[in-house]
């Protein structure tokens, strides 16, 4: 009888010993057991819990990381926009606006750019369009919220340009899908690799906007002028953003007003 109840009595006594005392006393006993007999169990429990907490923390960090990544992308886009509007060759431009290319009309060299700015933003026909590499084209049609840009690659585009080194004037035009500087005097000291810029005869562009470099000089036996094949700086096919120079009007005595 005694033997039958011995184990139960001993264990109950142990329970009583553990329960007796205030909170501090129970905590002290729990600490002692946690560091000795039950150390492996409690340690494993703590490890599992810390792994779970680490996973939750990791998930939170992933979310924060994704948000920060979106923020970085947003900031990068803003920097790109600002960098695009920083035009080293136009130090005194008063009014310009950055526009996104939102579409195209026409195909191949007939292609025109559609931008997301219009009369509501102050755009007018014949406003100059460029990017941070150089001249792009000019505005040919404006709606309240969008505008059409005639790029230099279009056959109808004409622009008064000049050799940056010798200041020899010429006209930029598209011949057979390539950009040429025409009307170059035969005796002009134009050389391969020369940079071509917009000339002071242009009513659309201010003087000095880079256009491209001369790749090849040609002369037709029947023509009194030479022409130069140009490698433009701006790549019309991959333009995403442009800058529109708002209305530089007043010069009516120019090549463009005469049809160029």
């Amino acid at each position: 009888m005694i033997k039958r109840h011995l184990v139960l009595s001993l264990l109950l006594l142990l329970c009583l010993v553990l329960m007796l005392g205030g909170d501090e006393s129970r905590l002290a006993k729990a600490r002692l057991l946690s560091r000795s007999l039950y150390y492996p169990f409690l340690n494993s429990l703590q490890t599992i819990r810390s792994i779970r907490q680490a996973r939750i923390h990791n998930r939170t960090l992933h979310e924060q990381n994704a948000l920060l990544l979106l923020r970085v992308i947003d900031l990068e886009n803003r920097v790109e926009t600002l960098a695009g509007s920083d035009i080293p060759f136009l130090p005194t431009v008063q009014h310009l606006i950055v526009a996104d290319v939102i579409g195209f009309s026409g195909s191949f060299e007939q292609r025109q750019l559609i931008i997301n700015r219009g009369t509501q933003d102050g755009l007018m026909v014949n406003d100059a369009v460029l990017n941070n590499q150089g001249a792009v084209g000019k505005v040919v049609a404006v709606a309240p919220h969008h505008a059409t840009v005639l790029p230099f690659s279009h056959p109808q585009f004409r622009l008064g340009v000049a050799d940056a080194r010798t200041h020899v004037q010429g006209i930029l035009e598209n011949i057979g899908g390539h950009q040429y500087i025409t009307m170059i005097p035969i005796d002009a000291q134009v050389a391969l690799g020369d940079t071509v810029i917009t000339s002071n005869l242009s009513t659309v562009f201010p003087k000095g906007v880079p256009v491209g470099v001369i790749l090849k000089l040609e002369r037709h036996p029947l023509h009194p002028y030479r022409q130069a094949l140009l490698q433009p700086f701006a790549n019309i096919g991959s333009i995403e953003q442009v800058i529109v120079l708002l209305s530089r009007k007043g010069d009516s005595d120019s090549l463009e007003s005469a049809g160029y």
Binding site: L8, L11, L12, L14, C15, L16, V17, L18, M19, D23, R26, L27, K29, A30, R31, L33, S34, Y38, F41, L42, L45
Partner: peptide, 20 residues
């Protein structure tokens, strides 16, 4: 029961007694 109690040290001995 004691192992369970050690995760709730303020009630040390309670679950051990109950389970017993």
């Amino acid at each position: 029961g004691l192992a369970y109690d050690l995760t709730l040290p303020l009630s040390l001995g309670m679950h051990a007694t109950i389970l017993l």
